[in-house]
Design a protein around this nucleic acid. Sequence first.
DNA 1: CCCGGTTTGTTCTCCCGTTCACAAACTCCT
DNA 2: AGGAGTTTGTGAACGGGAGAACAAACCGGG
Lengths: 227, 227
Amino acid sequence: MERAAVTARTSPESARDIPEATVARLPVYLRALTTLSEQGTGTCSSEELAGAAGVNSAKLRKDLSYLGSYGTRGVGYDVDYLRYQIAREIGVTQDWPVVIVGIGNLGQALANYSGFRSRGFRVVALLDADPARRDEVVAGIEVRPFDDLEGIVREHSVAIGVIATPALSAQDVADRMVACGITSILNFAPFPLNVPDQVDVRKVDLSIELQILAYREQRKTGQGAPA
Amino acid sequence: MERAAVTARTSPESARDIPEATVARLPVYLRALTTLSEQGTGTCSSEELAGAAGVNSAKLRKDLSYLGSYGTRGVGYDVDYLRYQIAREIGVTQDWPVVIVGIGNLGQALANYSGFRSRGFRVVALLDADPARRDEVVAGIEVRPFDDLEGIVREHSVAIGVIATPALSAQDVADRMVACGITSILNFAPFPLNVPDQVDVRKVDLSIELQILAYREQRKTGQGAPA
DNA sequence: CCCGGTTTGTTCTCCCGTTCACAAACTCCT
DNA sequence: AGGAGTTTGTGAACGGGAGAACAAACCGGG
């Protein structure tokens, strides 16, 4: 990492172009480091950390090198120091307000998921278009009508929205979110969202994952595809 | 696609080595085709289908070319015909029994998720290690003790297991699954599973997805990483 | 101070996936 | 029958990521 001067772009001195694949792994490293820290480990080698994260050690080292030179040759990495550096890079040292739209089975599970809060994400509102759901309380949060979206986004400066609605409503919800100023969307609805370029979307599709497994399973058993 | 004779490997005449990335997209195409079919569309071009699936049309055509030559130049694809071909290739024309372990918030949401059954996946059992959960009924299925795993797997010839437990139990559950003969695992627990090579694992990690969005969000707002 | 052992950071090579661009093939109209 | 228009299937160029391998850097002992 050359680290030459300061790139004078948006961020003061942090890395400029971390590969997509690396960004996707940083949270995994972060979690592994947290586990190690809780176990009282003060220092670890790239081999150990890679093992705990389930990746190749060379890949781990290359990933970390994009952030800077936070290790010591011959020694390894200081667990807490590296943990902080990654957390800072990802942005989980700050608090991210989040809204969840669609309080069905999945939406409720998400609202109750403790992994969000513990990683810096705070669910500020649960929204649902169904009037029957009004005034219901899920995970200690009152369910509010979808039309409240704009007010909530403005009030809490929400940048991240989660869509857990049926497929048919997903695009409408996304459009409204974008109109309100939300710029990152996590989509659980099985529908390919169409959004402006500046808006980031990540999708999680449960049945697709199973279908991928089914494909490989089919090939394993050698039964192939029926003619 | 040459389609030369018969490859004489495991499967009778289907494609031999479909790229991983393509396999991951086939379910998306399948869903888009189903939607088109329900709308009464009989034929579609690669451009239309690509639009409905949210991908580039060139990529779509190349993906489909791995399966065979199912389109007609100058015309497009027959929706129902192509849909059947993809479904057969993925293996969703048959019925896949599935067990879900860990009936917390997420496990319950998964058990209730209608998208599984409608795509050829049948939840044959819900298991939980917590005795307090025994005899509870979720999604019309009785929750049974985790120790029943082996009997259930044997009885229903289960090949696919879903892990929705806390991180600490995930590896144990996976080990038991593998010992029972399960060869495909969908893991929702935030823990990198260690399994033998012949076992396929796909992981879905909710908080990692949000962290990836947070990273990009942080860069967008230009606030960068605090020094 | 010097040397062996250890571990990081980085370079280099290979492979997979994406995209462009175009020839082949089909339809429809005259 | 022939030609214009359309759309597929694929060859080729391109970019990015994975992994091996190695030089640079650090620690500790004598």
